[in-house]
C-alpha cells in the first residue's frame, strides 16, 4: 500500500538537515511504504513569531530537502500573517517559484480567527494553495496551555474557513482537536483534516470518516514528534473500509498535491 505523509518536519529545531540524516529518513520511510513526505519546515526554530528573513530560512530548509530527494519531498511554505500582506505575498511567491510549494503551513503565530489571516486567504487564492492550520483544543485541558492568542482552537480554524469558503483548509492534528473539532468543521466543505500528532486514541479515525467522509481525511504523522509506524498503524487498524484507508493514506494527498 502506498502512503503519503502530508505532515512532517524532517528538520526540527535545527536537527535533521544533514544529507546522511535525510537519507536515513528517506530509507526508513520507504521501508514503511511511504512514497513521499510533505515537509512543513522547522516552524518552531525561531519561536512563535518569525520575521521575514526567518520564514525564508525555514522555507529554504524545505528546498534543501527537495534538492536532495526531489521525487520524495514536497513542501508547504511557512508564512507569518502578522507581518502583513506585502511580506506574506512576497514569500508565498518566492516559495511557489523556487520550491514549487504545494500549500501554506501556519503554526502558532496567531489565532486562526485573527484579521491578519486575510493575507493568508489572499495568498491561498492567488497561488491556488491549500492552507494547513495548526489546531489544538484550547477549552478546559489540564495539560500544557498555549495562549489563545497564538493557539487555534477548532472553532478558530472553522471561523477562518467560514470567512473564506473559497480557500481549502486542512485542520491539522486529529488527536489534538478531537471529536469536538471534527463536529466543528463537519458542515464546512472547504475543510479537511489531517491525522497528525497526539497519541493514537481509539475511535477518532472511525468518527472522522463517519462524520466527514474519507475524502476529507489526510494521513499525517508530525514526524519526528511522532513515530510513523504508530501513526500509520492507527489507520491500518481502524475499523474502516480498505477503500477509505487507501484514500486516507495516499489517494487524497495525490489528488490535492497533483502527485501523479
Amino acid at each position: 500500500m502506498r502512503i503519503f505523509d502530508i505532515h512532517t518536519h524532517p528538520i526540527l529545531m535545527g536537527s535533521g538537515a544533514k544529507p546522511e540524516e535525510i537519507k536515513q529518513l528517506y530509507t526508513e520511510g520507504k521501508a514503511l511504504g511511504i512514497v513521499g513526505m510533505n515537509s512543513l519546515g522547522d516552524v518552531s526554530f525561531y519561536g512563535h513569531c518569525p520575521d521575514a528573513g526567518q520564514c525564508a530560512k525555514i522555507n529554504d530548509g524545505n528546498g534543501h530537502l527537495q534538492r536532495l530527494f526531489p521525487d520524495f519531498f514536497t513542501s508547504f511554505c511557512h508564512l507569518n500573517p502578522t507581518l502583513g500582506e506585502r511580506v506574506v505575498m512576497k514569500e508565498a511567491e518566492r516559495c511557489v517559484t523556487n520550491f514549487n510549494s504545494k500549500g501554506i503551513k501556519l503554526e502558532k503565530t496567531n489565532n486562526a480567527s485573527a484579521s491578519c489571516m486575510k493575507h493568508i486567504a489572499k495568498a491561498a487564492r492567488e497561488f491556488n494553495l491549500p492552507v494547513l492550520q495548526h489546531t489544538w483544543t484550547v477549552h478546559g485541558i489540564a495539560g500544557r496551555r498555549v495562549p489563545r492568542s497564538i493557539q487555534s482552537d477548532p472553532t478558530d480554524t472553522a471561523t477562518f474557513a467560514r470567512r473564506h469558503p473559497e480557500v481549502k483548509v486542512i485542520m491539522a492534528h486529529l488527536t489534538g482537536f478531537g471529536f469536538r473539532g471534527i463536529a466543528e468543521v463537519k458542515h464546512l466543505p472547504n475543510v479537511s483534516i489531517d491525522t497528525s500528532a497526539g497519541y493514537p486514541e481509539e475511535g477518532l479515525i472511525e468518527y472522522a470518516v463517519e462524520q466527514l467522509g474519507a475524502d476529507r481525511v489526510y494521513y499525517g504523522s508530525d514526524l519526528p514528534i511522532r513515530e510513523q509506524s504508530v501513526t500509520i498503524g492507527r489507520i491500518l487498524g481502524a475499523r474502516i473500509t480498505p477503500k477509505d484507508r487507501q484514500k486516507i493514506l495516499y489517494d487524497n494527498a495525490a489528488i490535492l498535491l497533483g502527485l501523479n
Binding site: 497519541y199 493514537p200 486514541e201 509506524s229 504508530v230
Partner: peptide, 18 residues
C-alpha cells in the same frame, strides 16, 4: 493501553522498530 489507544499502532511501534 488498549482499547483506549490503537492496538495496531502500538504493536507496530515494537514490531517495526529498528
Amino acid at each position: 493501553c488498549s482499547p483506549l489507544l490503537s492496538t495496531r499502532g502500538q504493536v507496530d511501534k515494537l514490531n517495526l522498530a529498528g
